[in-house]
Design a protein around this nucleic acid. Structure first.
Length: 509
RNA sequence: GCCCCCAUCGUCUAGAGGCCCAGGACGUGGCCCUUUCAAGGCUAAAACCGGGGUUCGAAUCCCCGUGGGGGCACCA
């Protein structure tokens, strides 16, 4: 059980280079869950050591995305904490110090090779179908000489002195032991010539300093895990538990989402960016439930999870190492589930912005009466105004063809509606319960199926062929408005009834 | 080209040698309910990538193929 576990210290460490997408969201979620269920700590660390790729909007997007999802961090930007700063760009000195420590230990070296030089070597290796590796040229420069050159201002980087012989076995929680020949591991750059650390150094140092116990990160890091293990070893530190999460595939299951496909997707009302889901009418609860289950499962029959459920039930043992295709149909399903699980007041509150966006100036209180009849009928919040906007419209003016009943003539339709109006006008109390029976009677009197007659009423009152239940809707709209809309429809019907060439009644919708 | 990872219905998955002629969920079809649309209930079709082993017995273990994914930067 969760309480028996040691408190875990985990982190989510994105680089602010673009909008936060589903894959990142899930990584953050799993980290968050692991921390919460053990009473541990969840760190947010911004990996912004790449000046060139830095995008100032990305950080704001990241923070609002995580907040929207309900993933609050214990230490990080905004909230601070004892392990700061939480921006790697502000930890330059720390990395420099650690790089020097490695040089002292003979585990790293200064490299003065130019980018052009490196490029030539690499191209030669590629031509020979070899795995591109650093040539080793600067490895053999005596340390004192190298230090002097560096001190003299010669442009340089610091590289890791990767072992050349033997092999290393690393452990990934989901995949077990992975053994790699050391000859495969390159002398990677640790410190760039601009003095900033590269991920391989910065993340290891930070994870150690922040006492991270479990590293849950994307699978694309798996190939560099052996390198990272060597770096830990070089420092003499104890490694965290490594967990590499599978990647998300595009809906077809064939490959990762490309930039172009991502754009294409947004055109069709889908997105992989967290910030878009609110606009599309999704609940954070729905999105969280959805992504939690992409790569993790609890048991055979539980699929509805609140954040609290997930905190209680999540476990890294049940993580699935194989890649998962994104399925937006499933998101709709979960979103519907969570909409239906929302207390009515809460749903009303959440619907307000969508009604406003659709041009209806309403507040949650005004929405309350319609909640019971739309709650099971919307899968996304933006469907609210679509389905129930008519409650708040001054005028409903459906085209007259919509007012002609199925398989009926305009005259027949008009007669039935006229009768309906007469009855509704004098109903002692205008309620769904009181209206339905007499309206059924009208249908019967005219030899109509209930659906035929009700369809006319629905179209006249709501202006929609698809609506919440008719009589409940009429009750909420209120007698005066219902009668006004009905009479307007009646006028329209009578107008075309006098037309010498009435439109074909079979012409519908 | 080299290295690493993965492999059950269309999709997400359960399954840790006999409980599986493989279970659940989404989606799809049908039926019920029904004034429309949903929701709900019932139901159907739908999968162990291939080949070799190991074993009395394999979806489950091993090997080889194949397929898919990831990586091979002074990006993360």
């Amino acid at each position: 059980m969760a309480t028996s576990k040691q408190p875990t210290r985990v982190r989510f460490a994105p680089s602010p280079t673009g909008l936060t997408h589903l894959g990142s969201a899930r990584t953050a979620l799993y980290n968050f869950l692991l921390a919460k269920q053990t009473g541990g700590k969840f760190f947010l660390r911004i990996e912004d050591t790449d000046q060139k790729r830095y995008d100032p909007n990305a950080e704001q997007d990241l923070i609002s995305s995580l907040k929207w999802l309900g993933l609050a961090w214990d230490e990080g930007p905004d909230v601070g904490g004892p392990h700061g700063p939480y921006y790697q760009s502000k930890r330059k000195d720390i990395y420099r110090k650690h790089a020097e420590e490695l040089i002292e230990k003979g585990k790293a070296f200064y490299c003065f090779c130019t980018t052009e030089e490196l490029k030539v070597v690499r191209e030669g290796q590629q031509k020979r179908h070899e795995q591109p590796h650093y040539s080793g040229k600067c490895r053999i420069i005596p340390v004192d000489e190298a230090k002097q050159r560096a001190k003299n201002g010669e442009s340089h980087v610091v590289r890791f002195k990767a072992p050349k012989d033997g092999s290393i076995t690393v452990a990934d929680k989901l995949r077990g032991a992975i053994t790699v020949e050391n000859s495969q591991i390159d002398d990677m750059v640790l410190l760039k010539s601009d003095g900033h650390a590269v991920y391989h150094l910065a993340a290891m140092v930070d994870d150690h300093l922040m006492e991270i116990s479990h590293v849950l990160r994307s699978e694309e890091w798996l190939p560099s895990l052996p390198l990272h293990a060597h770096i830990y070893e070089a420092f003499g530190w104890q490694q965290p538990i490594w967990v590499h999460l599978s990647v998300f595939l595009k809906p077809s299951g064939k490959g990762k989402m490309s930039k172009r496909e991502t754009e294409q997707m947004r055109l069709t009302g889908q997105s992989i960016f967290v910030k878009d889901f609110a606009d599309l009418g999704y609940l954070p609860e729905g999105v969280v439930n959805w992504i939690a289950l992409m790569g993790w499962s609890f048991d055979d029959h539980t699929e509805f999870f609140t954040m609290a459920d997930l905190v209680e039930k999540f476990d890294i043992e049940s993580l699935n190492p194989s890649p998962a295709a994104i399925d937006f149909k499933k998101l709709d399903h979960f979103n519907g589930l969570h909409i239906r699980a929302l207390p009515q007041k809460e749903l009303a509150k959440r619907l307000v912005p969508y009604f406003k966006k659709a041009g209806f100036e309403v507040d949650a209180g005004q929405l309350m009466p319609i909640i019971p009849i739309i709650q099971t009928r919307v899968t996304t919040l933006d469907e609210g105004p679509e389905l129930a906007g008519f409650f708040f419209k001054e005028e409903i003016a459906p085209p007259v063809e919509m007012l002609v009943g199925k398989d009926m003539s305009a005259e027949q339709s008009a007669r039935a509606v006229r009768k309906g109006v007469e009855i509704l006008e004098v109903l002692p109390e205008f309620s769904a319960a009181n209206a339905e029976a007499p309206m059924r009677a009208v249908a019967e009197e005219f030899g109509l199926k209930a659906g035929q007659f009700f369809g006319i009423l629905r179209n006249a009152v709501t202006g929609q062929e698809i609506s919440p239940p008719l009589f409940e809707s009429m009750e909420i709209v209120g007698r005066d408005t219902v009668l006004a809309r009905l009479k307007r429809g009646l006028d329209e019907l009578e107008k075309i009834s006098k037309n010498p060439e009435p439109p074909q009644t079979t012409l519908k919708k």
